[in-house]
């Protein structure tokens, strides 16, 4: 969690409060957190046996939502796991940002 908060505050310049909120979600599931940490090191989504949730890998999400980096992608993996219907709706809608 500390590594993730460091990344969010130092590299992404998030305020500590936002960093905490974002990191807490990223760390909710061990498998998602671990792959995020791998991304943090590699800065790409090309992994052997990538984590797949509801049929989507992180690479798939990154392709569909190019505005997201690893933080957004893996947080979305959490959404896919917890609220697959909502997540699929976002995918279908094309992640509109207003």
């Amino acid at each position: 969690m500390d590594d993730i908060i460091d990344y969010l505050t130092q590299e992404k310049n998030k305020t500590p409060v936002v960093a905490q909120m974002v990191a807490e979600k990223l760390c909710r599931y061990e498998d998602i957190k671990n792959e995020f940490l791998k991304w943090l090191e590699a800065r790409n989504f090309d992994f052997d046996n990538p984590l797949t949730i509801s049929g989507y890998t992180a690479k798939d999400i990154a392709k569909m939502a190019p505005f997201m980096d690893g933080t957004g992608v893996y947080n979305f993996m959490v959404t896919l796991r917890e609220k697959p219907d909502s997540a699929k709706q976002y995918i279908e809608e094309g992640f509109p940002i207003l």
Partner: peptide
């Protein structure tokens, strides 16, 4: 506003926060 969640960090969080829900 102080602690705005950007869509690139957490799309669901961005969608759920009051500023966006309210505008929708």
């Amino acid at each position: 506003r102080m602690y705005y969640i950007n869509p690139e960090d957490d799309y669901e969080g961005y969608e759920n926060q009051i500023l966006e829900q309210d505008a929708k």
